[in-house]
Write a protein that binds this DNA or RNA. Structure first.
Length: 196
DNA sequence: TGCAAACCATAAC
DNA sequence: GTTATGGTTTGCA
């Protein structure tokens, strides 16, 4: 049985769905209803779940992690994500993405080069990322360092994406790279993000 | 700059 | 099978 929890963190609503220490879905939005809608959308259509009012220990840990991401803190954790129901390519992209650290971003193009496929296919995975913002899809921007889309491409989503990144800026100056299961992935300092 | 065409995995029919 | 759909990129005027 999948259990779901919701909580208001700052002025943002967060919701999570977990089963046996494994995360099925996370979601966040400016209001509770939208947040729950997204959580449900991230789950397989026929997968049932029930809301629990009292958060479990695991739920508290995840909410804590969400809070730190929303505040741009440097954190590390080791959650298990349920990805067996997702397409293989999607799994690869999400897995690589977890290697992008706070203070850096990568691009749709760079990710595509590492995991295979094309930049657009990567964007498709970002748009349906069930684990935002734990799996940091907000740290993927366009190859020309403009912001790109967020939250399904909505205008408000882009503002949130920019705000998250500005909070994560650690002042790094030089590009870097990191090792992933699929090979090396290019990283760029958040500061490379174009202002306009 | 701005627009058209190529790109590529998925979901929906 | 086939088509439609993007959180993109590139080329060319």
């Amino acid at each position: 049985m999948i259990r779901a929890y919701r909580k208001e963190i700052g002025d943002i609503w967060c919701a999570i769905a977990i089963e046996n220490e494994k995360i099925w879905s996370t979601a966040f939005a400016t209001n509770e209803k939208e947040c729950v809608r997204q959580l449900r959308e991230n789950l397989p259509y026929n997968q049932s779940f029930t809301f629990e009012e009292k958060p479990s220990l695991m739920a508290e840990k995840i909410f804590g992690a969400l809070k730190s991401v929303l505040e741009g803190e440097n954190t590390s954790w080791d959650f298990k994500f349920e990805t067996r129901h997702l397409p293989k390519y999607t799994q690869r992209v999400l897995n690589c993405l977890t290697k992008v650290p706070v203070g850096y971003v990568t691009t749709y193009k760079a990710l595509a080069k590492t995991v295979g496929g094309g930049p657009r296919a990567v964007g498709q995975v970002m748009a349906s990322n069930p684990f935002a913002p734990l799996v940091p899809c907000h740290r993927v921007i366009k190859a020309d360092f403009s912001i790109g889309g967020f939250g399904g491409g909505s205008e408000g989503g882009v503002k949130v994406k920019r705000a998250l990144l500005e909070r994560e800026d650690k002042g790094f100056q030089k590009p870097s790279r990191t090792k992933t299961e699929c090979g090396m992935l290019e990283l760029f300092p958040v500061g490379f993000l174009r202002k306009n």
